[in-house]
Design a protein around this nucleic acid. Sequence first.
DNA 1: CTGAAAGCGCTTACAG
DNA 2: CTGAAAGCGCTTACAG
Lengths: 341, 341
Amino acid sequence: MANIDDVAKMAGVSKGTVSNVFSKKRPIGPKVTERVLSVAKELGYYPNHVARSLAIKKTMIIGLKMPLFKKREMSGLEVQMITGVIKECSMLGYRVLLDTLPEHDDVTQFSADPVDGVILLNPRENDVRIERFRQMGIPLVLVGRPEPNLGDISYVDNNNTEMAFQVGDYLLNMGHQSILFLNASSDMTVSKDRENGLSQAFRQRGLELQSDYVINYSRMLHASASEYGYMVVASTYKSLKYTAVIADTDRVALGAMRAARELGLEIPEDLSIIALSNDAALAQETTPRLTSVELEAEQLGAEAAKLVMQMINDSNALSQKIVNTRLIVRESCRAYIGAER
Amino acid sequence: MANIDDVAKMAGVSKGTVSNVFSKKRPIGPKVTERVLSVAKELGYYPNHVARSLAIKKTMIIGLKMPLFKKREMSGLEVQMITGVIKECSMLGYRVLLDTLPEHDDVTQFSADPVDGVILLNPRENDVRIERFRQMGIPLVLVGRPEPNLGDISYVDNNNTEMAFQVGDYLLNMGHQSILFLNASSDMTVSKDRENGLSQAFRQRGLELQSDYVINYSRMLHASASEYGYMVVASTYKSLKYTAVIADTDRVALGAMRAARELGLEIPEDLSIIALSNDAALAQETTPRLTSVELEAEQLGAEAAKLVMQMINDSNALSQKIVNTRLIVRESCRAYIGAER
DNA sequence: CTGAAAGCGCTTACAG
DNA sequence: CTGAAAGCGCTTACAG
């Protein structure tokens, strides 16, 4: 491809002039501009982004590091998050570099990526990558809280503990005392936070959340989210005495509802069901419509993007942002006033 | 951040040597290697990806151009497609640059992106961008067929016409003669292809697909995919005499099923329903389970990625790949033997 | 196995 | 408003 030198020569001007008609950083006379542009068109010249980036030390690219998904799909939550990031970035002229490469331990494999800032999804405990970005001087924001949290790192997160507390409170208020919790996989920090929140809601009323009523999703045991909901309800309803189910996601709830139907249970008359996220946007479609929490994952992504772009412009910027969730009451829960089941 | 010169000086070697301990392009003695590595670590040095890219004229990045989505979410199909691209690229060490920027008409705004190849989603008719990438000498593959199709451009696509033909044939075979087609938005090439395929199935039997039985989704009229299915069935069932519905997606089918329920219709006894895609993975979850076509969008993305990487290595590579769809029969269709409705 | 130097294609003070 | 030249941080023949 033609380069800036070719254009400069053929148009009879200097490289600097060509550079400026494209970047408009300083004014170039109209005749010269026109001549340069027509030569550029003739030669099929387009400025080289890489060379430009090297010269100005900016790429206008935000890196998005996400866990490698080999067999699985992206979750609805991840998709929404990414959507938020992309929308926000494109508004300010940034692009997004998706990166799912595993974190080698071979230092030799790393390079300072062609990005101006990084958003890191689901950091692990004591994530080595955090320190690495600090060394490289690349602005970083996490989605999900860091563990440990030294307060010197930017992140955005949902109020998971609080959210589970509210949901528990909502159900307990309606007279449910025995609640099945279909929690996320136990190795996720959110699952701990949520179990904590639910526990607090119980304790606040002098009750105890019993451990056999909280189940964790397991990739080994469950083929899919809805199968998880289905299997657990189908196999525990006889033995455990719950009158309400808290499902991790709407898909899990869908499975649970299917199991309930097969057990001859009416929802919400015989069993209340609530989902902690509505990421497949199914809550409106079920019969009855599903009461759920809206996680605002897209906003989470948008906030992360805003924050990282802010840090790019002001290297002292640093902040933690908690995005609130909303409980949307639909039709799948009802007060429980009966005796013990 | 420290650069290669700093490391070279402090380690008492040349830049070339430092370069080679990181790139391993030529062997460096063990003592020297160790010294360089320890200095690099001390200085927090990481090779600069941009500078490297400029020197070797490769970025190991694939650009993924997709339509700007302002208010809407990504569709399930897009997500699967992207997933396929990412998985395939990361296998060979490529990263993905997501790009939703609108296509300005201001030539001055373009630059030769920091990518080795490009995948372009849903090209428009006579898309100017196609020619632009050719000028830049950047390998390009489309997802969706080009219009017009001059045969000189690589693309991957579903067999949309064929697929709609098969679905039509399946239903006609079962005795349905009057079929409602809830098609995609009319400005998409797929919607034309599919209508064509369905028409052919009718004609093959000496029948005619009537135009008032094919409806197109419209962003103006319909709030969501499932609302689209719901509204159209609810409002046309009385006036049009169909015994089967072909829905564009599983979400559309879900809405149609809800409308049918409210009309007091049993599925499949009173009405057969089939979906042309299962991108929200809902087909297993409905009651009855939904007969649908599997589009293999992830494979579509993977094929596109493979193809573009192949073109990067062999500039003469060029090919068109059609990814076949599969009709999955579940429970939502049944033979129709009655008289006219 | 190692070094010195030119080159990748831009931008930007500096000078006019 | 325009030009000449140094610099961004790497890689890679070429020479030893």
